[in-house]
Design a protein around this nucleic acid. Structure first.
Length: 495
DNA sequence: AAAAAAG
């Protein structure tokens, strides 16, 4: 257990931390905070849910405060880049929370909203600028922001940033930053492209690795429901009749699909809304807010919400569509079982998704138990999965089989899956060992990092700037993480 | 193949 009080943080920060109800730091916080206070670059292999955001928010605030400078117009001292708007906003909240006793100003800039309030805020002068790449470049091109004064640069979710094609944008931004700066790069995985990027932007970095996934995933009750595509929406509405599913996030593969599902739920009398990248920013904020405050029982999302989004008390994650990227499965289900609670993840698998399911099971290195008792259970889909043969190509006329399956099991009421272990039905309280979990919530959410508390500090490996990394191919990897950090890209069997 | 992000 590392107490915050032992990390060298100043009183106004410790007070803010205490006011949030934390006393013990998560491993990444315990490891990163002293390094960052000492001015080191850090390569963090960590994802949301590890306490990452507070791990950099706190020391950055402290360094800004201890080295006070008058901030010139348009010339922030800190730049934080994130792949999504929602993540940027969350980090902005973190600075507000932990900086509440310090005279540090921050502003968040991102697309989808008018730029003038952002331009004025930057012109007035802020220490901390949190941005998504597009709007930042936009404002840079218009000379609304000067990055020549940046002392701290944080690249968050670097792997996702690259996946989303932001590498060029990131490099454009980095090109105008002063060479003499402190840099932090966070990434959940370390594919070669991230290793290259890390090597080019970090100087003599300390590497910190935390592995939340395996421990988190353990507490998630996972199961798969084999179902015919045509039955998915009815199945979903049926499941949601169970009031224990009080706060459920439903993942869809496409934006259009997400809208349709949300509409269907609304018609079924379930409070729901959709969030995806084609929605206006105000609609995105509204949906997230209503879901957070409990007005909505279900939030239907694309993978925009698979990572990073932090909402308390999500009891269930439903994969209405299986993700084609196995990695995404782990991120999605990680939205539940946070803050020390258990959670359930139910995945619908239709005939054409069997290949994805197999890839996911390979990635997490465990089979996902099937619920075969549900009225909508599609026997043939289950058989396809059971057979080791690759999923069949021919588009089978699904409706007939479907009908049969249903008839066989007609007696069962269409409700929550009976076979599911009890724990799956309700978000049971976690067997919390040590009372209140520690640490500023990991990106605003705690998880069971305290399980590792015995370790004095996260596994910190000095590896310098990485160029001496032998072949350079050795991607650092979080030990024990279920496949999530495999440097190789996987291809789904069926696609 | 789809998603995210600048319009």
């Amino acid at each position: 257990m590392t107490e915050f009080s032992g990390l060298g943080l100043i009183e106004p920060l410790l007070r803010a931390v205490a006011e949030e109800g934390y006393s013990t730091a998560t491993p990444i916080q315990a490891g990163a905070i002293p390094l960052l206070l000492a001015g080191r670059d850090v390569l963090g292999l960590a994802q949301t849910g590890t306490g990452k955001t507070a791990a950099f928010t706190l020391p950055i605030l402290q360094r800004l405060f201890q080295n006070k400078k008058r901030v010139a117009a348009k010339s922030p001292r800190v730049l934080i880049l994130t792949p999504t708007r929602e993540l940027a906003l969350q980090i902005g909240d973190s600075f507000t929370t932990y900086g509440r006793h310090l005279p540090i100003r921050r502003t968040v800039i991102h697309g989808g909203v008018g730029q003038s309030p952002q331009v004025s805020a930057i012109a007035r002068g802020v220490e901390v600028l949190i941005a998504t790449p597009g709007r930042l470049l936009d404002l840079m091109a218009q000379n609304h922001v000067n990055l020549g004064t940046i002392e701290f640069f944080v690249l968050d979710e670097a792997d996702r940033m690259l996946d989303m094609g932001f590498i060029r944008d990131v490099r454009k931004v980095v090109a105008v930053l002063p060479k003499d700066r402190q840099t932090l790069l966070f990434s959940a995985t370390m594919p070669d492209a991230v290793v290259d990027l890390a090597n080019s932007i970090l100087t003599d970095a300390e590497r910190i690795e935390v592995t939340p996934q395996s421990t988190t995933v353990e507490r998630i009750n996972q199961r798969v429901l084999f179902v015919d595509r045509a039955d998915k929406r009815r199945l979903l509405a049926d499941l949601l009749e169970d009031k224990a599913m009080a706060r459920t996030i439903v993942f869809a593969r496409t934006k259009h699909g997400a809208d349709r599902i949300a509409d269907h739920l609304k018609k079924a009398g379930i409070t729901a809304d959709a969030i995806h990248g084609d929605k206006s920013q105000s609609a995105r904020v509204r949906a997230l807010e209503s879901f957070r405050n409990g007005e909505l029982r279900a939030l239907v999302a694309t993978d925009i919400a698979a990572r990073g989004i932090d909402i308390d008390g999500i009891s269930h994650v439903i994969n209405f569509d299986l993700p084609n990227e196995p990695e995404s499965y782990v991120h999605r289900i990680g939205r539940t079982a946070r803050a020390g609670t258990d959670g359930s993840a139910v995945s619908f698998c239709d005939h054409e998704e069997v290949g994805y399911l197999k890839d996911i099971e390979k990635t997490i290195r465990q089979p996902i138990p099937a619920d075969t008792t549900h009225p909508y259970h599609a026997v043939e889909v289950a058989q396809i999965h059971a057979s080791s043969k690759p999923p069949p190509r021919p588009k089978a006329p699904g409706s007939n089989r479907n009908q049969n399956n249903r008839n066989q099991q007609q007696a069962r009421p269409a409700a929550a899956p009976k076979a599911a272990p009890k724990a799956a039905q309700q978000p049971a309280k976690a067997p919390q060992k040590a009372g209140k979990p520690a640490g500023p919530r990991p990106d605003a959410a705690r998880n069971d990092q305290n399980r590792h508390d015995r370790r004095p500090a996260p596994h910190a490996v000095s590896h310098g700037n990485g160029h001496g990394n032998g072949s350079g191919k050795q991607a650092p990897r979080a030990a024990g993480t279920p496949g999530g950090n495999t440097p190789m890209r996987r291809k789904p069997n069926a696609a």
